[in-house]
Nucleic acid binder design. Sequence first.
RNA 1: GGGGCUAUCGUCUAACGGUUAGGACGCCAGGUUUUCAUCCUGGCAAUCGGGGUUCGAUUCCCCGUGGCCCUACCA
Length: 497
Amino acid sequence: MSLFGKQKTRTRFAPSPTGYLHIGGLRTALYEYIFAKQNQGTFVLRIEDTDQTREVEGAVGGLLKALKWAGLEADEGILLGNDGKVAEKGNFGPYTQSKRLKIYQKYAQELVNKGQAYYCFCTPARLEELKANQQTAGQLTHYDRECLKLTPDEIKGKLDNGERHVIRFQIPEGQEIKFQDEVKGEIKFNTTDIDDQIILKSDGFPTYHLASVVDDYSMKINYVIRGEEWLSSTPKHILLYQAFGWAVPQFAHLPLLLNSDKSKLSKRQGDVAVEDYRDHGYLPEALVNFVALLGWNPGTEKEIFSLAELIKVFDIKKVHKSGAVFNQEKLNWFNSEYLKKLNPGEFQKMARPYLEKNIKQVSPDLNLDKFFAIEQQRISRLSEVGEDLKFIFAADLNYQAEGLIWKKSAKATILKNLKSLIVELQKYDKPDWRAETLEKNIRDFIASNNLLNGEVLWPMRFALTGEEKSPTPFEVAEILGPEKTIKRLKEAIEKLK
RNA sequence: GGGGCUAUCGUCUAACGGUUAGGACGCCAGGUUUUCAUCCUGGCAAUCGGGGUUCGAUUCCCCGUGGCCCUACCA
């Protein structure tokens, strides 16, 4: 809050470019996006690439594409340019941490000068040994502040010698750090439990703690929404804000997304990359809708929400405190709902590539409009298109003749009915070859000949599909067209003889 | 081990301290259908345990217990 009125809300999503967009990251980004939008604020995207060892080539582009696919484009920071390449926009850049090293170094030095941080020359070996000893002694595994004893001259000497060093933030002892988390409520920590954090690594890169505090301050982020795994680090961050004399932002820590065994959602137990869901044919609207409802709901019984609706009804104060299991069954349900809502043209356009992947040969004389119309009602993921309807595309059907015989009806009856069915079907002109017309006429034919539905429709369907389960024979016939339909019926008769 | 967070059907969740604890997904049964899917109807299924406070506790407090996160020169 400034003296001159309410500050503009600024949220940020700050992923590390380590590979892909994690589904938990998607939800975090979603809430950050929504919160910014519902407050006429700005959603900033920053890249946190301070760990050079974990960096993955091309990950930033992938992250941005996944975010764009989900409809969560940043207003500022790192984003996709018009040419589809990674670009940057905004006045508080650079927005990539590896390009801000000088800034962090300056601030770390400022803390050293103020006596709130200190150089540490301890080797990893010493640190390891210290920790091991503390562990066996049952003590807190904190740094023992050996380097705090160094005199200014000793420090200068080591520095001049080019000794490897880090900068540690000196955590004051015996202080209670209290803050009001927007979702978790009042949180308290005692600083005695906190180790002297390394804020600047020996390679000159900052650690997360320094980088995120400096950046959130510099980029005027006043609303930090992030995963619960950061809750325990928040007192360190608050201490840093205080050391610099900066206003502490509002924090909101989101409950984690979990595997079905309640552990933190991880790759081992299924897909966690947004890109995987996209590739399997989940719609962004469905994924976003599903993920939005993991840990939050508006308190009504409505479950289907567009992004625009979410912006209207979302309330960060109603976000749950505990983790939510990522339940793919429910996601499938959402996806099938969204798939059904698509107009046929859109569905077909999206499903086509999957069909071509699933079926080697797609004969051009098939009525694919009808095929897609049926699949749209039956599948829950685009990757399933054609899976259960392979018989449509098969050159030959392989089935046992017995399958054609409905329940206990006689073989002779079936044979006779199939023959007259062919005669009946041969009457239709191609324009009439639609499921509705076929159904009406075939049902009339059945009734006027005093036949049973099953003794005509079962063998018809089986002759056309070779399967015990399928869409109606009328629909299958419409897709197949007159020639293929009659050909399959004739083949069935041959098999029965 | 230490610290923090957390706890309603299998899962996602609803319930100003007073409800037969509601809905959704999934599952099961019935109906519709030649079959499958859809659809319709119905059903199974939960307040972690123990103490308080209260006329009354899923709800507030405490203690357990479980789960999760942090405890890195990772984020």
